[in-house]
Simulated assay, not measured.
Amino acid sequence: MICIAIANQKGGVGKTTTAINIATAIAATGWRTLLVDMDPQGNASTGLGIPSHDRDYSVYDMLMDEATAAQCAQATRIPKLDVIPATQDLSGAEVELVGESDRVDRLKHALANAEGYDVCFIDCPPSLGLLTLNALSAADSLLVPLQCEFFALEGLSQLLQTVERVQQGINPSLKIIGVTLTMFDRRNRLTDQVAEDVRECLGGLVFDTVIPRNVRLSEAPSHGLPALIYDHSCAGSRAYMSLARELLGRLPPERKAA
């Protein structure tokens, strides 16, 4: 199973929107897809139509060895797409696991037993704490959503340093599969400047596709639907479909189903 973490310690950059819509787009191509919601806010779970009262088992139970990945996974309305939801209990996991010797490997061990999936996406919280470290430990690669604004560049350097430390001490095989520019507004000259700077710095790591600011992307989660289902023809949906095609081009051709 290919495992991709979607992370950026800065909040509001489009991580969850990217996770939901990329997972939906990849599932639509026929890949059996799992989305793991590692954010205690549980927005990815809500955005895929899993209300909080229907989350009998969650990522927290999986990390605490109280349930298996198979028990926690719930089907969504999207064919071939399952989600392991998050609850507020997850916010306590960092404290409860801090004294455990395998505290950064809990997710990796749990997902090793997740059978029947070709690819897994992990939606990380907006921090570089223990939950995100678990995601980076479990992942083969990292997808970085980057908002087109000045402070995002500063945050990117911190994230790259964290990835380097993870590679050195936790997961030597972790690589950055790509950086996707989000909330792109062509009316804002700063947006173009930031995009140019990121491409100059990271070169081919940056996806050609940019995700525009789009009202329909913001509306879709309130209906419990990915934007690709809510309005497949809007600019945001078209951009995520294009991004999914690029991402597939960077994945191994064979499906590594567990």
Rank of each mutant, 00 (worst) to 15 (best):
G236V: 01
D89F: 07
D231W: 05
A114W: 10
R32G: 08
P51I: 01
R250S: 02
G116A: 05
D123E: 05
G169C: 06
P40Y: 09
T180A: 12
I122G: 11
R187F: 01
L81M: 07
L128Q: 02
A139R: 01
P172E: 10
N214R: 05
C72N: 10
Q161E: 15
Q147E: 09
R199F: 00
D197S: 15
T191Y: 05
D123G: 02
C234F: 00
V83K: 09
A235N: 13
T180M: 05
A5Q: 08
P226K: 10
T162N: 02
L251E: 07
L128Y: 03
E94L: 01
G203C: 00
E100R: 14
Q193P: 03
T182V: 02
I122Q: 08
A19W: 09
L153E: 04
A44H: 03
T87W: 08
P226W: 05
D208R: 13
I6V: 11
A19S: 15
N214S: 05
Q168W: 07
Q193N: 14
T132R: 04
L190V: 11
Y230T: 13
Q193I: 13
N113R: 13
T182A: 06
N8H: 09
R103P: 12
G155V: 04
H223T: 15
A114S: 13
M241G: 12
N21G: 03
L128E: 07
S222I: 10
Y117W: 11
G92H: 02
G116C: 00
T33E: 13
P226E: 03
D197K: 15
R213G: 01
R103N: 09
Q147C: 00
L136H: 13
L81Y: 07
G30K: 12
R213H: 10
S222A: 11
D89I: 05
P126T: 05
A227G: 08
A195Y: 00
S157V: 14
A73L: 01
S101H: 13
P145D: 10
L107K: 09
P145C: 09
G92A: 09
P40N: 11
G169I: 11
C148W: 03
A19L: 10
R103S: 10
T18M: 04
